[in-house]
């Protein structure tokens, strides 16, 4: 149930950039680059997502990215430098469109299932006739029990 609208945070950060008094790059930029780099501390997360407090790899790496960004390097240049330093295996791929497609496809599939369910179980609004004649003997009992209802 919890949704933290991070893209909105980004928007808010950009518009509120005027208030930020530090000439540093925003955390979102560091995050974007960090997501492309594996954390080498032993976890299998990325530099951006490793949350081990005081991680000996991720934290200095984030500082490094911040400095490189401030120095005006592009994302690709930063990644290049990291791969030179730690080997190409540190690079992580960008999220592909498959990641997006499947969840939405599941909603579509669900809609189809609902359609099938409705088709299968819908019935024509029965003519609003009285209770079928054969059941009229229950009419009295029903009326009696209904009266006791409230």
């Amino acid at each position: 149930m919890k949704r933290r609208p991070a893209p909105l945070v980004l928007l808010a950060l950009l518009t509120l950039g005027a208030f930020a008094q530090m000439p540093s790059k925003s955390n979102e930029d560091i995050h974007r680059v960090g997501m492309r780099l594996a954390c080498l501390c032993g976890c299998s997360d990325t530099v951006a997502s490793c949350k081990m407090p005081g991680c000996h790899f991720a934290e200095p790496a984030r500082v490094e990215i911040r400095e490189m960004l401030s120095a005006g390097l592009s994302d690709a240049q930063i990644l290049e430098r990291f791969s030179q330093k730690h080997g190409a295996s540190i690079l992580r791929a960008e999220p592909s469109s498959l990641g997006w497609l499947i969840p939405y496809a599941s909603i579509g599939l669900g809609l189809l299932m609902i359609y099938a369910f409705v088709r299968r179980y819908s019935r024509k609004p029965a003519p609003l006739a009285e209770i079928p004649a054969g059941d009229s003997r229950y009419q009295e009992q029903i009326e009696k029990e209904l009266a006791n209802l409230e």
Partner: peptide, 17 residues
């Protein structure tokens, strides 16, 4: 209200049967 009430009564008759 009327339509649903009819339905329910019909179902009730079904159960009694």
């Amino acid at each position: 209200y009327q339509a649903t009430k009819k339905d329910l009564q019909r179902e009730l008759a079904g159960v009694l049967a």
